[in-house]
Simulated assay, not measured.
Amino acid sequence: MRGPHQERTRVGRDGRFELVEHVGSGGFGHVWRARDSVLAREVALKFLALDRLVGRRPNPERLAVVRDRFARESLIAAKVDSAFVARIYDCDIDGDEPFLVMEYVDGRPLSDYLGSRPLPLARTCRWSGQIAQGLAAAHDRSVVHRDIKPVNILVREADSDVRIVDFGLSRFIDATETHSQAGTPLYMSPERCRAEPGDERSDLYSLGCVMYEMVTGWPPFGDEHAEAFALARAHEEQLPMRPGQAAGVPAPLDDLIMALLAKEPRQRPDNARVVVRAIAEVERLLGDIGPEPSPEEGPADQAHRAGTGFADRLSAAELNVRHLTTQHGRDHHLVITARIELADLTGQSGDTRGAADLYDRIGRDCDDWYGPGNSLALDAFEGMARWVVARGTTRSQHTS
């Protein structure tokens, strides 16, 4: 893949880092997968676009100030120690361009998993809890991210755990005293929309926006095409539709997301560890794992007995689908069987809505691959109907 620095093969002191692949570019820089020749490990290099931060012809004194600030912010961010935060190993400079040396995360951004459909509740709770744990570790070190959004949350291929990336960059960008402000309007807290520095609770608001999108399929306000000014005004003045209005979202999860989206920082949860505990309570609400279902049990009965114990099994089932897809292709019968098993396991975990949605996707895919009315598609739509009925039964039992 071609990209910036394509004429170079090594960067850093004594050519320590061998550039392997240009991963992508953003508003304030670009990322390369690289090989650390000293420690013999794969890393990610994040180069910062100085022309966006200090202008195309900055004076030497200005450049020196920016480089020093970059080194200080990198040192602060490197102190964050969490299994759910991509580690920062070092910072260096290539010519006039500073770059971070970070843990390379082999995975995809959370944004790849989001769209018009909600995520299964078990996956939402698992990933949200991990993001909150990563934020808690950073906030314990007085490090605020300021730009929590789906593209800054990577999901590892190996275990489906998340890694938050780009800690420290937002404060550095804010401190350059340019007209640029770090943050993404779709996920930006009201105080950040007002160009205030914000604090740990600003990250919690952004987490609330991400969780809202996971359970509903869309952000709390607007979309990627909306004007930044209109989004800022919505964050400051409007209330989103409660996510609990989407069928299958438990009331405690609905309450937590709305608390995270409070306009005033003092009305949000006190800290990220409070959020971690609240998410764990939601997982427990879905039920503890029990014995294998008996033949007499229907989907509605199974939906009461699942919960946190299903997290590892769901993760393993998702990984199995990915591995089989890589080996055989999406339309192979082994992949379809694995997706059906994942759908049923999702329903048994208490997420009947997610199970119905997964079966619907299987049916639509089989329609596309094998033609309308084929037996695989009909079986999938029948499975969707079973879980739709189970969802209605479960809701009526909760309200009776």
Rank of each mutant, 00 (worst) to 15 (best):
W387G: 02
L260H: 00
G26W: 03
T124Q: 05
R194A: 10
G244V: 09
S349D: 01
D360Y: 14
M102V: 05
G298F: 07
S160L: 14
Y104L: 11
H323N: 15
R10I: 09
V65K: 14
P299L: 10
R233T: 08
R171G: 12
G198R: 04
D379E: 15
A175W: 09
L45N: 03
G55P: 03
R395T: 15
S315T: 13
R123D: 10
A78K: 01
E61D: 15
P150Q: 03
I279M: 02
Q397Y: 10
A232R: 10
Q327W: 12
D174K: 11
M188W: 07
R156V: 02
G168Y: 01
M214K: 00
D92R: 11
V388M: 11
T176D: 07
D36A: 07
C91D: 12
G350K: 07
G129C: 07
A228C: 06
E73D: 08
V215A: 00
M214C: 06
A385C: 11
R284Q: 13
Q397N: 13
T178E: 11
F310L: 13
N271C: 06
R146Q: 07
Y212E: 00
G26S: 05
S82H: 05
L121Q: 01
V274S: 13
T346C: 03
L39E: 13
S202P: 04
R322P: 04
D68R: 14
A40C: 13
M384L: 11
V282H: 04
E7A: 15
L285M: 11
G363R: 07
E341L: 14
C193F: 11
A86F: 02
H145Q: 07
L253N: 01
R339L: 04
C193P: 03
T352I: 02
F172I: 04
V388F: 06
E236N: 08
D81A: 13
T308V: 12
I153C: 00
V151C: 07
R33C: 13
F99T: 10
G129P: 01
R171L: 10
D203L: 04
H225G: 08
G392A: 10
D106M: 10
L154P: 03
A77C: 04
R33T: 14
I173S: 02
R57P: 02
I131P: 01
L207T: 01
F381M: 06
C193H: 11
F17N: 03
G168Q: 02
C366L: 15
D254F: 04
I173W: 01
D203M: 05
L135K: 04
H235S: 01
G107K: 10
G55N: 08
P291M: 08
S128W: 01
L50H: 03
E264G: 08
D344T: 10
Y370L: 13
T399P: 01
D166E: 02
G363P: 09
P4F: 08
I257M: 02
R194C: 03
A300D: 12
R87A: 14
Q130G: 11
V11K: 11
A311T: 10
E341Y: 08
D203A: 03
R163P: 06
Q245I: 12
A226V: 03
R13D: 06
L119N: 05
E341T: 08
R330G: 10
H323K: 15
I289N: 13
G298E: 14
A77D: 02
G198K: 05
D312E: 15
L186H: 01
R33L: 15
G12T: 02
C125S: 04
L231Y: 06
S142I: 08
H139Q: 09
P118A: 04
